[in-house]
Simulated scan of single mutants.
Amino acid sequence: MEHVIEVEVEQPACTTRHAWARVPDEPSPAERQALKARIAELLRARDAVLVAHYYVHPDLQDLAEATGGLVSDSLEMARFGRDHPARTLVVAGVRFMGETAKILSPDKTVLMPDLDATCSLDIGCPPDDFAAFRAEHPDRTVVVYANTSAAVKAQADWVVTSSCALDIVGALRDAGHRILWAPDKHLGGYIQRETGADMVLWRGSCVVHDEFKAFELEALRREYPEAKVLVHPESPAAVVAQADVVGSTSQILQAAANLPARVFIVATDSGLMHQLRQRHPDKLFLEAPTAGNGATCKSCAHCPWMAMNGLRGVLEVLETGLNEIHVAPELIPRARLPIERMLAFTAARKRGEPPGALVPGLGAV
């Protein structure tokens, strides 16, 4: 197995206090119904479509599905928006998702309920610092996670999601590539362990997944010995080691449908529980425990920036056109290239074709 180099990188402090303070109040049942009706009306009038991440409020997930939009992960949201005929995309999620949608749909208007809704992985990987990190390792192929800014994606050779990272890094390893990875240290470590790739890791983490704790998970498993454990690979290695299935949000949803079990312990953002419980009302889904009062960041297994998205915010941007996402025009083609490379790779794999020339050095075998 090749070695992994872990590099400590000075990162800005990540506080969630401001984000939690910006979480909108829950509307009353009557206001909720009125908001949904008005938003649906404006989506039609503005030639707009709502795309929502699995981690946002159930109201937004339900509304996206009810109005012909989509609930999915970040790349599927962007790809859906690119292929949809609507001229305006309303992205309920965090800022890098809006940027990715704009990168793939530069001629469309992309709006977000709150432009301050961001991601600890994104803000923990500043573009200038990342450029300096790359300069220290000029011989490595740069692979970045989707949870990064457009300016970081523009510096990458490949963009990956948690559902395709293993396949892509494995193919790069087979072709003799040495990898520079950013920003999530847990996902990067998982990929390195599984593929044996030679990797240098940026030391970022997700404030939600980083708080899952192995000791508390072991205790919950003893309480529910029949439970299957589903873990997102942004979680610490000791939590991943206890998983029956390690995978992305969509892979966790698939496992819940396919595994012959009635009880599941789920280690990812609690926003996914809405889809899991909605799709499988006969099954019991338990949130994996976090560090509770001992947490370094009060996550409660839910992203505070995702929680900033609400019905009132969606209505406001549809009424006013505020909170439009802009990406510097010179960044768009550079950031789109590694995304399109990933999409071509995953499409080839889905068709059962070898990646061939998509991975330099791998050849057609």
Rank of each mutant, 00 (worst) to 15 (best):
G321L: 08
H137Q: 13
S28N: 05
D107Q: 12
S205M: 11
P233K: 13
R79A: 12
L172R: 00
H186L: 03
L343R: 08
F264N: 05
T249Y: 11
S248G: 03
Q251C: 07
A335V: 01
R38I: 00
L315P: 01
L111T: 00
H326V: 12
I339G: 05
Y55A: 08
D107W: 01
L337A: 15
T268D: 03
P225H: 13
E2K: 14
N293R: 10
H3I: 09
E8S: 12
F80R: 05
D73N: 09
A344D: 13
E76A: 15
L75F: 11
D174E: 15
Y54D: 09
E136V: 03
Q254W: 09
L63R: 12
G204D: 06
T268C: 04
V208F: 10
L43K: 05
D244T: 10
R279A: 15
D25Y: 08
P233D: 13
N293D: 14
D244P: 04
F285N: 06
V49C: 09
I191Y: 09
C125Q: 00
I265F: 05
A288W: 01
A86R: 00
V359W: 00
L43N: 00
V246F: 08
P338F: 01
A348Q: 07
A267R: 06
S105Q: 06
G313P: 10
T15F: 04
N258L: 15
V229P: 08
A19N: 04
R279D: 14
A219G: 07
E6Q: 14
N323E: 14
E216H: 15
A295C: 12
I168F: 06
D139G: 09
N323S: 12
C119E: 00
P225M: 14
E226R: 13
V90T: 04
F264W: 09
E287K: 09
C303Q: 01
L89S: 10
A21W: 00
L60D: 11
M112K: 01
L180R: 02
R46W: 03
Q275Y: 04
A243E: 12
R38W: 11
P333G: 03
H53P: 00
P29R: 06
M306P: 05
K36I: 10
G294R: 11
A86L: 02
M97T: 02
Y145T: 00
H326L: 14
I39L: 11
V152W: 05
M273K: 08
V314A: 05
H18N: 14
N293M: 12
G124Q: 01
A291F: 07
R336S: 10
C119W: 03
V91K: 00
S299P: 05
S74H: 03
A182E: 02
R193C: 04
A347N: 06
